[in-house]
Design a protein around this nucleic acid. Structure first.
Lengths: 249, 249
DNA sequence: AATTATTTTGCGGTTTTATGCAGGAAATTG
DNA sequence: CAATTTCCTGCATAAAACCGCAAAATAATT
């Protein structure tokens, strides 16, 4: 097993479980404690994790999920949110995923809007339920803890019964070849169902995520009607998507 | 369990409850008193909390004026929560309502418990989802905004499909004649369904609510198996309930 | 291809850290 | 003020971290 390989496995484990024990790792990969210790040291030096006596902790353990980075992209998300809310009309049924961009949208809803929001995300539903007039429907199922999201066959079955006007997806990766992709199996299943249950699919993404891809495909690009980023609609980066017939806002 | 992990758990608990007892912590995490004491000492040195004889207080206790009022009934709810969690065994399926007493119970769950919690309450589900091992299932439906609760026929239908080991209800009123009653139609419908879907129904209530009633009946008293209050089980106030054959804890 | 340089790894011995335990001091409670 | 609980100090122990070195694996060079 290569050093790089080992370290990426360690990172994977640490981000998955929020912690790792040196002893576990050395047993799992059949290398000496010293090797693991040196790996953790190196990763810690590069700011990939936090080393502690006996093992290591993920960064999110201290700063909360990537605190500083989020504050940085807050403005961008705000711009996206403003563009998104302008698409929502009174009386509409709106299906949404979770994620920080969607939360920003939920906060940007005009107080006099009368619409119905449907979501699997605990955080999003919480936010929607602060709204004075909008109705909110929570889709239930087993909660996927990392993302605070109902995921499972029950949830998917419920979504399938719907046909909403709009579907807003906060996305992790989009790419003209691979379409939308993500790294969480459960989330992908739910998003797939949401896409099928809406007249119009709108993707929200900060420009950093444009032209990247992740292991699991959500859908190919022709299922998407609209793409919202913080950039100007005629930005060069968005050219491939305009050419593919997507409305870029 | 890593030292930092433990300390972060302590901090979490302190900020949640505004206070912690060393004895509770050492029991919950199965380490010696000394370890906890040293942790508290260290955290106190770093200004993360305020150490006092027997435990620690959150900083907001001194800084923020908010705390002291809550502390009074907090203690009662904490006692109730402790009694309630002791009824939960590994592997059980537990149906719960929402409300502050239930939230307190969710926070008091021992970290090593493995159980499945099912609820309609957004707040409760949020709290359960912080637990490292327990599974959490959200029942979905239209959100009743005032109480942040899924309520409606869909939710009731889902609950009807279950047969759980335990049902914990946080209740607003109980009375030997009228049984349990409440003042929110939607909440009552859901609670009714929950009662029918559990082997054992446990009511949690602070003593102030004993012998009071509200407009809408949830169920009559013989549906209840156990009543938990902050009082001693042989308190005079609870006599009528003991006589009615309810296990009073 | 052979050899040299560089990196990576494992091992023995030492130091540090984390934790529990025992006994006495201090604090809290009734 | 007596009894119980909690706190502190020092000590013991086991685990983890560290250090230096040599073997092994990899990469680079001739």
């Amino acid at each position: 097993m290569l050093k790089k390989e080992r370290q990426s496995y360690i990172l994977h484990q640490v981000n998955l479980h929020n912690k790792v024990l040196s002893a576990d790792l050395s047993a799992q990969m059949q290398v000496s404690d010293d090797t693991i210790r040196r790996d953790l040291q190196e990763l810690s030096l590069n700011g990939m994790l936090i080393k502690v006596h006996g093992g290591a902790l993920s960064l999110s353990f201290y700063n909360g999920p990537a605190a500083s980075k989020d504050i940085y992209s807050y403005d961008k998300k705000r711009i996206i949110a403003e563009k998104a809310v302008s698409m929502i009309q009174n009386g509409m049924f709106v299906l949404t995923s979770g994620g920080t961009t969607i939360l920003e949208m939920a906060r940007a809803l005009p107080p006099n809007l009368h619409a119905t929001f449907i979501s699997c995300s605990l955080n999003a539903v919480m936010e929607y339920s602060n709204h004075p007039h909008c109705d909110v429907i929570m889709i239930g199922d087993k909660i996927s803890k990392s993302s605070r999201f109902s995921a499972g066959p029950e949830a998917i079955a419920r979504i399938r019964q719907l046909k909403c006007d709009l579907c807003f997806l906060g996305i992790n990766s989009i790419d003209a070849v691979h379409g939308i992709s993500d790294n969480d199996w459960d989330v992908v299943q739910v998003k797939k169902a949401m896409i099928e249950s809406a007249q119009k699919v709108v993707c929200l993404s900060i420009s950093e995520k444009i032209n990247t891809h992740q292991p699991i495909q959500v859908c190919c690009i022709d299922k998407i009607h609209t793409l919202i980023t913080e950039l100007s609609p005629d930005d060069q980066l968005l050219r491939p998507y305009r050419d593919a017939g997507i409305e870029v806002v």
